[in-house]
Amino acid sequence: MTTHVALRFVAVGDSFTEGVGDADLRLPNDCRGWADRVAEELARHQPRTQYANLALRGLRLKQIVEKQLNPALRMAPTLVSFHAGGNDLLGARLDMRSLIGRFEDAVARIAESGAHVLLFTEYNVPLSPVLEPFKLRTAVFNKHIRRISAAYGTLLVDHWCFEKYQDRRMWAPDRLHMSGIGHEYMAKKVLEVLGATHSLGSPVLGALQPRSRAEIVADDAAWLRRDVAPWLSRRFRGVSSGDHLSARWPALMPVVLPERLGMSAQPVRL
């Protein structure tokens, strides 16, 4: 995507776009994420770039549409990233037809505004063999995302196809959100889809150290206690991890480059 008009980039969605997993205590909601990184790279080459990020963790598609779409469109964006539906796919009950219809309606509204639309497929996150049935839901949803993208002429980041995310270091300890390395690589792939000049490289990952069966079992037990149990508790109580948070960057603003905040602009390496 190339443009001579001042770029107004608005990010809409859930924890994937908020930046959860890419921890940074100096930033709102203590995270950075791929969208911030994309905005930074765009601003380096298009200084008039403005950026807003309305995404918030824990939201389902219906909530994202109701809470974020109108505010996003009122900003007259030239680019809208839209990622939603992942939390719906993890629900005990799912009306796939309704989910797909609501997703397509949202994409149609964004496209009608004249903004470029950026969509994403979902990744088959390697949570646990117990949750493998969710893979079918994800595959069906992705099939329709690709169809919708083609029908409305949107840009598409086909996350499902990125083999690098098979490496567990691309994921945060909760196994659901990308790590800092995962977010940086996602930013690179987004910029490639946008056709934008950037300085991001692929993650530099050494060989994975083999783990014993005992280490794997201990890691699984810690994950269930630390991440799964609280998540199930919130689901049971009808609350979300984002209930007491606000959008990180709720209004369009010039992009503050990380070097001005004393943050490293170098690639994350392991």
Rank of each mutant, 00 (worst) to 15 (best):
Ile64Cys: 04
Pro133Thr: 05
Ile216Trp: 04
Gly238Asp: 00
Val10Asp: 01
Asp30Thr: 06
Ser15Glu: 01
Leu252Asp: 09
Gln46His: 15
Thr2His: 14
Ala52Pro: 11
Ala35Cys: 06
Leu79Val: 07
His45Glu: 01
Arg260Thr: 14
Tyr185Ile: 00
Gly242Ala: 04
Met96Glu: 10
Gln209Asn: 06
Leu79Thr: 03
Val239Arg: 15
Asn87Lys: 05
Arg248Glu: 00
Gly86Phe: 09
Pro133Gln: 03
Ala218Glu: 11
Leu59Met: 14
Thr138Pro: 02
Val107His: 13
Ala207Met: 06
Lys143Cys: 03
Leu252Asn: 13
Val204Pro: 00
Asp30Glu: 12
Ser240Trp: 12
Met96Val: 13
Val204Asn: 12
Glu122Ala: 11
Lys164Met: 02
Glu259Asp: 15
Val20Asn: 08
Ala76Gln: 14
Met75Val: 10
Trp231Asn: 02
Arg137Gly: 02
Tyr152Asn: 06
Met75Asp: 09
Ile181Thr: 13
Ala35Arg: 11
Arg102Pro: 00
Arg146Gln: 13
Gly206Asp: 08
Arg44Leu: 03
Ile110Trp: 11
Phe120Tyr: 06
Ser15Lys: 05
His183Gly: 04
Glu192Leu: 04
Glu215Thr: 08
Ala229Gln: 12
Gly91Phe: 02
Pro254Ile: 05
Glu40Ala: 12
Val80Cys: 14
Val125Ser: 11
Ile181Tyr: 03
Trp231Val: 02
Leu270Ala: 15
Ala229Glu: 06
Ser246Ile: 02
Leu224Glu: 04
Ile100Gln: 10
Ile148Arg: 07
Ala214Thr: 12
Ser233Gln: 15
Ala76Tyr: 08
Ile110Pro: 04
Ile181Ser: 05
Gly195Lys: 08
Arg93Ser: 14
Trp34Met: 02
Arg235Glu: 01
Arg97Trp: 02
Phe82Cys: 00
Asn29Leu: 07
Ser233Val: 10
Gly101Val: 02
Ala72Ser: 11
Pro126Asn: 02
Leu89Arg: 07
Leu118Pro: 01
Glu192His: 07
Ser81Arg: 10
Leu155Trp: 13
Met178Thr: 11
Tyr123Lys: 04
Val125Glu: 03
Asn124His: 15
Asp22Ile: 07
Ala214Asn: 08
Leu27Trp: 12
Ala139Ile: 13
His198Trp: 07
Ala251Ile: 12
Val20His: 13
Leu205Glu: 05
Phe134Gly: 01
His144Thr: 01
Thr138Leu: 09
